[in-house]
């Protein structure tokens, strides 16, 4: 097994700021926008973007929530394992809001499909966008594409993309593992 660095800490830093600016350009004061990090790995990206928007761009009122999609997945009972859930924490309604779903890696698109269903338990959003740090091209099972992407990569099925965050793994880095 070998691993290659896809993104360094500096590159991640630049990309996060760019993504924050793109969000800002589209959503301005965020009064009608909510950021939803997908459990378990998308929440770190969502928290980082929210921090950057607050600290560096003085956006004061950001609604940030975490959505777990376990009970909405389409592979329950497929491989004989119990799917273990994570915490959903959405303290607001998404009725008529612009929802930005945030995840670290976009791969087959199945998690996003589940998230699109799951988020509707919290109301009827005005529109839903998707932001991912890594977009794995040519691997989609469903017609889903991100509105905001950090980096698009060409990775074959057998390879794995791992996003590490300081909060969890002690470093900001993206690896390609094969």
């Amino acid at each position: 097994m070998s691993q290659k660095v896809l993104l360094s800490e500096k590159e991640i830093h630049i990309i996060l700021h760019r993504l924050a600016c793109q969000l800002l350009e589209r959503h301005l004061d965020f009064s009608e926008t909510v950021l939803i990090g997908l459990q378990p790995r998308g929440i770190f990206l969502a928290q980082r973007l929210s921090q950057i928007l607050k600290k560096d761009y003085q956006v004061s009122n950001i609604s940030l929530g975490f959505l777990d999609i376990t009970f909405f997945r389409d592979d329950f009972r497929r491989d004989g394992k119990t799917l273990t859930a994570n915490k959903t924490q959405i303290d607001f309604l998404v009725d008529n809001k612009n929802v930005v779903l945030i995840d670290d890696v976009l791969y087959t698109g199945r998690s996003i499909r589940a998230a699109l269903t799951a988020i509707q338990s919290f109301g009827r959003p005005k529109e839903i966008e998707l932001l991912t740090l890594i977009d794995r091209r040519f691997s989609r099972h469903l017609p889903i594409q991100p509105n905001y992407r950090g980096r698009q990569v060409d990775v074959i099925m057998e390879e794995k993309v791992k996003v590490c965050w300081k909060e969890q793994e002690g470093e900001d880095r993206v690896y390609l593992i094969n």
Partner: peptide
């Protein structure tokens, strides 16, 4: 621990999940 998640689910505006549809 699983019930904790379901307790959150049954307090949502839409209190249903599709896990056991089959």
């Amino acid at each position: 621990e699983t019930a904790d998640h379901f307790k959150e689910v049954i307090n949502r505006p839409i209190k249903k999940v599709p896990s056991l549809r089959d």
